[in-house]
Computed example of a mutant assay.
Amino acid sequence: MAIGGLRIIIVLILALSLPIRSFAQDVESKPILIGATVSLDGKYSEPSFMIRKAFRLWEQEVNGRGGLLERPVKLILYNDKSQKELVRKLYTKLIVQDKVDLVFSPYGTPLTLLASEVSEQNKMVMLACAASGEKIWERGYNYVFGVYALAKRYFIGFLDLMAREGLDTVAIIYENSPFHIDVASGTESWSKRFGLNIAFKKPFANAETDLPNILKQAIKVNADGLIISAYPPDGYRSLHLMKKAQYHVKALGITIIPTHPDFYKQAGNIAEGVFGPSQWEPDERIPFPGTQKFIEKFSAYANKTPSYHAGSAYAASQILERAIVHTKSIDHDKIRDHIRALDTVTVIGRFKVNHEGKQVGHNPILVQWQNKKKEIVYPTKMQTKSARF
């Protein structure tokens, strides 16, 4: 046999002896891509920091467990800068160009409304882990599911405690946007159930120009309780205006900012006594599985105590992971059907949705800042301190 022919035979033998990598193996090693936007800038940046860190913590943990479906998980997170016009573009980019397999929601009802339009058009499941405005679930969508208790239920505990204290009147100031409109509407409805009277109710469009005058009007009414529904920068602006006016109300409730671990540091002494609705609190006495471990791991990872925004983002990650493991698939119809039928408990509490995708299993709690510390004051079974007025 010629030397050249012998060489060919040897090369063929060596080639055949090498391990053959199948198409299935290539798919298994390809990462499962999960996309979302987060607000690194703008008015949503404070809660969005918590959400981003929780997503990244879960990504680290799930890959430490071997990934999902024997594939690593990779998050693609873009900065939406708290801007609605960017969200539609970025979710379209994630789905069409980046070809992500799954998506998480952005922060807040305004951004989630737009992001879910894109995910629904592409028949992709979205767990709305940071939005509770009911408009999201009033469009007949089939693939978007809520994690939060709905906005209209936010101040039930606050109003219940006011009624028990013998207080009679409530003033409401709120941003004129879907989530805050729902908060104000729900507050008005539940006030009537508790026998409280709405003494003042007014929205604002531009906080910088509108809030000073609206707050002056509310001060003149001198209601027993004041509820301010606004995103963080405007919540702090309201407190600054109240401090400047030397206005003290018997019961003050504000959305979002009182739940942040740095609230007292940022607001100063006026934070004392402020109430805030929360979806969950980082207290080891919270009786949900995995809560204490999550608090410890998040605190070590982010160098901050988690807020409920972190807890809910982590809970959404848990739910998605369970759905994928249970269905052994990233098929969105299978995941959707599993989530729709799910009744489970996450680190923040019960998860159960109705036929529209609205969260019906989870209930909000109420916190109050006392002696520079955040305490759970409602419901009674979860209290760390009694409410003070």
Rank of each mutant, 00 (worst) to 15 (best):
L252F: 13
A313S: 15
Q83F: 04
Y141L: 07
E188S: 06
T384H: 14
K84Q: 14
K202D: 00
L252K: 09
K352F: 01
M242I: 03
P287I: 13
Y247F: 05
A163M: 10
P106C: 13
G290V: 11
L239W: 02
L12D: 00
L215M: 11
R340K: 14
A130N: 15
M126P: 08
Y44W: 11
K135N: 09
H309I: 03
H240N: 09
S189P: 01
A171M: 06
Q292V: 12
T37V: 12
I227S: 05
L12G: 03
K74W: 03
K201V: 04
S22F: 15
K250A: 01
K53M: 12
S39P: 07
F294M: 03
F263S: 07
E59M: 07
K89G: 05
R71E: 03
S29T: 15
A300S: 10
G273W: 08
S307I: 10
L226K: 09
S191T: 12
A115M: 02
S116Y: 11
M1K: 13
G276K: 06
Y44P: 04
K99W: 08
L114C: 08
T187Y: 06
L159V: 02
Y107K: 15
A131H: 00
L69A: 13
I228V: 03
F158H: 11
G140T: 06
Y378N: 00
T384W: 05
L320S: 11
S189G: 10
I376S: 01
K135F: 11
A131R: 05
N213H: 01
F351I: 08
T327Q: 05
I335R: 03
A271Y: 00
I76T: 08
F263I: 02
P277W: 06
L226F: 03
D262Q: 07
R336D: 05
K293M: 03
K373E: 12
E61P: 08
F155G: 07
G108F: 06
H248R: 11
E272Q: 14
S307E: 05
R388I: 13
A149F: 10
T209L: 02
D343W: 04
F155P: 03
A223P: 09
G64R: 15
I173G: 00
K243T: 12
S185K: 11
W137N: 01
Q25I: 05
R52D: 12
D337R: 11
A36C: 11
